[in-house]
Design a protein around this nucleic acid. Structure first.
Length: 316
DNA sequence: AAGCCGGGGCT
DNA sequence: AGCCCAGGCTT
């Protein structure tokens, strides 16, 4: 949960998650849908899918025993170098450094590393320094201490160097360069996309929703049918007719605009336009999606949806 | 090695 | 509007 996600954001999700799935057996036995529902709004949903898978591996392939070595931890889906090191050092007392974003920033400053910290060699250099620094005793506490120092004192912006317990050992502070380290690579500007969502009821006053493919953006979450405006679309109504046909095979008539919401993802922004829609012909089947479902508006709260789609639902 | 993957808070 | 968050997986 803590991957690229602030502790304060995670805490309520964590509490709800462990009370819903208190054991590996409970998590392994739960449906992916129920896991995604508890994860809803936390983002990076592959983490939820991987955690669900990992619980299954622990219960069915590891005799229900949680692994303690770096090597065995790395074999669980979703556990990479940082988490393997964090768990084995904090929970099992192994002498390994846990290098997260905080640690990289602290070490880049303390050791005055002026090359971009995203560079492969620089990452290795930081890892090498951490390997030397990690103490034989209480390495888990050391790891947490460096992370905490990075979060509270050696912050990305406006570091509190006067209050820093190790400022006398910090080369960046010596040079007065703490604000310009670590060096950032410039990022590409993110594109803007226009997205469409069809709000369509059947005679039973049920709403049509589709489930996204399990891999890719917002994998496994539910959405209103519709898609991105492409080159050849002459207007958004055209986009919506085309994308609903691709997703579900049905032909629709596009009515009036109901709402529009803006949302920012990691690599692009969207404006999502919701249109009233009616079915002209065909029966919805899962073509360019994983599943289709007619659902009562009130029951849509049970299905995991992204923030942008949830906003549309709330406006309805 | 680079791209992909969310949502939220701070500046 | 940009940046960053107790990163990992895929290609």
């Amino acid at each position: 949960m803590l991957q690229q996600t602030r502790v304060d954001t995670v805490v309520p999700f964590y509490e709800r998650f462990v009370s819903t799935f208190p054991t590996f057996e409970a998590l392994a036995g739960a449906s992916l849908r129920s896991v995604l529902k508890v994860w809803e709004n936390l983002g990076y949903y592959s983490r939820a899918r991987n955690l669900h898978k990992a619980a299954h591996v622990i219960v069915h392939e590891m005799n229900g025993e949680f692994p303690s070595s770096m090597k065995d931890l790395r074999n669980l889906p979703g556990i990479g170098p940082y988490i393997a090191a964090a768990i084995s050092s904090i929970a099992f007392g192994q002498v390994v450094p846990a290098v997260d974003g905080n640690v990289k920033r602290v070490l880049a400053r303390v050791f005055f590393i002026q090359d971009p910290s995203d560079d492969k060699d620089v990452k290795q250099q930081i890892q090498d320094i951490a390997n030397v620094l990690v103490p034989k005793h209480d390495s888990g506490a050391f790891n947490q201490a460096v992370m905490e120092l990075g979060a509270m004192i050696c912050r990305p912006r406006n570091p509190r160097c006067r209050e820093c317990p190790i400022n006398k050992s910090c080369e960046a502070f010596d040079h007065g360069a703490q604000d310009s380290l670590p060096v950032l690579l410039k990022r590409h500007p993110i594109p803007h996309k226009e997205m469409t969502a069809g709000i369509m009821f059947n005679q039973k006053r049920q709403l049509l929703v589709v489930q996204r493919p399990n891999h890719g953006l917002l994998g496994g979450l539910w959405k209103f049918p519709g898609g991105e405006r492409m080159e050849g679309d002459k207007d958004l109504a055209h986009t919506l007719r085309r994308s609903i046909r691709e997703e579900t095979g049905i032909h629709v008539r596009v009515g009036k605009t109901l709402h529009s919401v803006k949302h920012t993802y990691t690599h692009f922004r969207i404006t999502l336009f919701a249109f009233q829609c009616s079915r002209r012909s065909g029966v919805p089947i899962p073509l360019d999606c994983q599943d289709v479902l007619w659902v009562k508006v009130g029951d849509l709260g049970q299905l995991p949806m992204s923030k942008a789609d949830r906003k549309i639902w709330e406006l309805l």
